[in-house]
Simulated assay, not measured.
Amino acid sequence: MKKVIIGVITAGLILVGAGTALAATYKSPAEIYAGLKGITVDQAYDQRESGKSFGQLAADAGLLEEFKEQMLINKKAAIQKKVTAGLLTQQEADALIQRIEANAAYCDGTGVGKGTGLGSGGKGFSGRGVGAGSGACCFGNGR
């Protein structure tokens, strides 16, 4: 019985550690922009009060390509997390990533454009679904 309890506790700790590691790798658009600019996230939000998206702010600073690259890394990680959770197949994920990468060429930082986003369909709130996104090619908006 002790071995079973120890096994359950160990498995739980491994899962918590993996979740923490995944959470630690994700950065919001504000965090990415702030990191590229060398400012705090609060300062990034202050700049966003001008009405511009973080993508537009990055473009204005000559950092749009770097911003897009970091946002793509985030999107790939989020998609892979859905694969790991069994919410997307690897084939679906690969197709989605391919579309996002292709559409990124049209991104001007405004956060508006044609694109495909992760939908919430199928099995409740986080089921399979490739829903219509509002500019998944553009990495400008968000908090």
Rank of each mutant, 00 (worst) to 15 (best):
Y106G: 09
D42C: 00
G111V: 01
D108T: 04
P29L: 12
R128C: 04
I14P: 05
P29I: 12
T116D: 11
A77G: 06
Q70T: 01
G117M: 10
A93P: 09
G55A: 09
T20S: 12
V4G: 08
E92Q: 13
A18Q: 10
K68V: 03
A78H: 09
T40C: 05
K75N: 07
R48G: 01
K27Q: 15
Y33G: 00
A85W: 04
F67N: 04
E66M: 00
I14N: 06
G117N: 10
L63W: 03
I5Y: 05
L118S: 03
G17D: 07
A59S: 08
A85L: 15
D42G: 12
I100D: 05
V41R: 07
D42F: 11
L36G: 01
L63H: 05
A102R: 06
I5N: 04
A95C: 01
A59P: 02
S53Q: 10
A78D: 10
D46T: 15
S28H: 03
G121R: 02
A58D: 03
A102D: 15
Q98S: 15
D46P: 04
A30H: 05
G62L: 05
L36E: 07
G121E: 08
I32Y: 06
T25I: 13
G19L: 12
G115T: 10
V4M: 12
G55Q: 04
Q47G: 03
L15R: 01
R128M: 05
G127V: 02
G122C: 01
T116E: 15
Q90H: 10
L22N: 07
L118V: 12
G117E: 13
A77I: 08
D42M: 03
A77D: 09
A59Q: 01
Q56S: 01
I6R: 11
M71V: 02
C107K: 04
G113M: 10
A11G: 11
S126Y: 13
A105E: 03
